[in-house]
Computed example of a mutant assay.
Amino acid sequence: MSRQNGPWQINDFTTGYENPWIRVEHNEVTRPDGSDGIYGIVRFANLATGVLPLFEDGTTMLVGQHRFAFDAYSWELPEGGCPKGEAPEAAALRELREETGLTAEHILPLGEAQLSNSVTDEYAYYYLAWGLEAGKAAPDADEILEQRRIPLSVLIAEILAGEVTDALTILMVERAVLKAQLALLPERPRDLILSALKGLPGVST
């Protein structure tokens, strides 16, 4: 039975592939202009979560790992999946602890995002964390991770230079900077972020 999806009509639907993390859907459709077509969607089993950790000295922690899809090494803020039944904030704190060993006294939502809304339904929740305490990392069995503690100012400069390309990392930093500039964050993380901006060309605090 056909059904409407906004201006699209879905005439038939099949699952082309499925594993514990994704499902690939194939849709036979009538396009908004009335012509026949197809539309493929990747459905994610988990939500995405990310966290920007801020140390009292103005540094943050990046995680380095090889990304299979791009066959390339990537430096990112701590990120991971949130399965059904787990709260996104709890998942973000869990990923922070697993990937870096850090625990946080304070965590604050920075925002939500559709990461690739043309061909996937991946949805992300991302956070700012401070009041950090060091511990031992416990990555998953399929993760070979490095940690890199750097000034937030250096991370901002690397993003501006195109050296850090992970979308969620860029989004977390840009949202945190914007909220700090608009005084929409608690005083301590706001001051740390604004201090990181000093000296960066073209950035007004």
Score class of each variant (00 low, 15 high):
T14K: 09
T14S: 15
T15H: 10
G16Y: 08
G16R: 13
Y17H: 12
Y17R: 12
Y17F: 15
E18K: 04
N19Y: 02
N19W: 05
N19L: 02
W21H: 12
W21R: 12
W21F: 13
I22H: 10
R23H: 05
R23T: 08
V24T: 12
H26Y: 03
N27D: 14
N27S: 11
N27H: 15
E28H: 05
V29Y: 09
T30G: 09
T30S: 07
R31K: 13
R31V: 00
R31C: 05
P32L: 01
P32N: 05
D33K: 03
D33S: 06
G34H: 00
S35A: 04
S35L: 07
D36R: 00
D36P: 01
D36Q: 03
G37T: 06
G37I: 00
G37R: 02
G37A: 01
I38Y: 01
G40D: 12
I41R: 06
F44E: 10
A45W: 02
A45M: 09
A45L: 02
A45F: 08
N46D: 15
N46I: 03
N46P: 08
L47N: 05
A48S: 13
A48Q: 02
T49E: 15
T49I: 13
G50M: 07
G50Q: 00
G50N: 01
V51P: 03
V51W: 04
L52R: 01
P53D: 07
P53L: 07
L54F: 06
L54G: 03
F55E: 05
F55M: 06
E56W: 02
E56Y: 01
E56A: 14
E56M: 02
D57P: 14
D57V: 06
G58Y: 11
T59M: 12
T60W: 04
T60F: 11
T60P: 15
M61L: 13
M61I: 07
L62T: 08
L62A: 08
G64S: 10
G64L: 03
Q65N: 11
Q65W: 05
H66F: 13
H66D: 15
H66M: 15
R67W: 13
F68I: 14
F68Y: 13
F68S: 12
A69L: 09
A69Y: 11
A69V: 08
A69E: 14
A69N: 07
F70N: 07
D71R: 13
D71M: 11
A72T: 10
A72C: 12
A72Q: 15
S74P: 00
S74C: 12
S74R: 15
E76R: 12
E76M: 12
L77H: 06
L77A: 07
P78E: 07
P78T: 08
E79H: 04
E79Y: 00
E79I: 01
G80I: 04
G80Y: 02
G81R: 09
G81Q: 08
G81E: 06
G81I: 04
P83C: 09
K84F: 06
G85Q: 11
G85S: 09
G85D: 04
E86C: 04
E86S: 05
E86Y: 11
E86A: 01
A87P: 00
A87Q: 14
A87W: 03
A87S: 10
P88L: 10
P88H: 11
P88I: 10
P88A: 07
E89C: 12
E89M: 11
E89A: 11
A90D: 15
A90H: 14
A90P: 06
